[in-house]
Write a protein that binds this DNA or RNA. Structure first.
Lengths: 113, 113
DNA sequence: TCGTATAGGTAGAACAACTATGTGTAGGCT
DNA sequence: AGCCTACACATAGTTGTTCTACCTATACGA
């Protein structure tokens, strides 16, 4: 069941940016974040729970996300995460960095043999 | 001196692909690989020697690069690395993976707020 | 003679993501 | 009643890449 073709792992460092981006769309709880990332990426990314929750705590510790317990639409308790002002700045910085990085990679991959 | 604006670190996993790509252009020694990557990426990537040599040994161990001591144009002994057939396949796989991954990231970053 | 560039390398720390495992509720199937 | 899946949170321990910091040695120019 695992290892279908490629295992779609994250490049270390991208997960934080993607989580911040998804929370920028509105308050959302952890489990839904992983579903969203999977859906939007058309099943390319599958966020393991052992990656998700440590990442959320990390982002909260850094003051980029704020957490609060609320009820979901299905009546269950869940921790909803909101992007802080600091987190928004961080997200913008990470997006800029990603753009420059992927441009640099493209430059190298584009060099003819 | 370090930490000018962004420190241009590698996303873990990209360095191997970039090294393979540079060796695909022809036999080249380690030190020159790091120069090439820096030049082609317009100084975005700076390959530290503590990243470079472990990576080269890793790639050689996996059979993706073959090494041989030769003389440089300046008359010094250096280890020249050549991409093996297996390494070329690996490079192609990594490029495909990178394309899909950066597409998936773009999908998420593109979602409107 | 001293510093820089070239050329190779290792040791140890940091850190993120993974696998595996745990808790507990709710709902559906047999 | 028993079992499975989905939902929702979480931690422990391992793996692997990259980093900083350090080491050797040659060649060249100031």
């Amino acid at each position: 069941m695992r290892g279908k073709d490629d295992k779609a792992e994250f490049l270390k460092g991208t997960l934080d940016m993607l989580i911040l981006k998804v929370t920028a769309l509105g308050p959302i709880h952890g489990y839904a974040i992983s579903q969203r990332i999977q859906q939007i990426s058309r099943d390319f990314f599958q966020v393991q729970q052992g990656s998700l929750y440590p990442a959320l705590h990390r982002l909260e510790d850094r003051g980029w996300l704020a957490a609060a317990w609320k009820e979901t639409e299905t009546g269950r308790e869940a921790k909803f995460y909101t992007l802080t002002r600091k987190g928004r700045k961080q997200l913008e910085a990470e997006i800029r960095h990603w753009a420059r990085l992927s441009d640099a990679v493209a430059l190298i991959l584009r060099t003819a043999e």
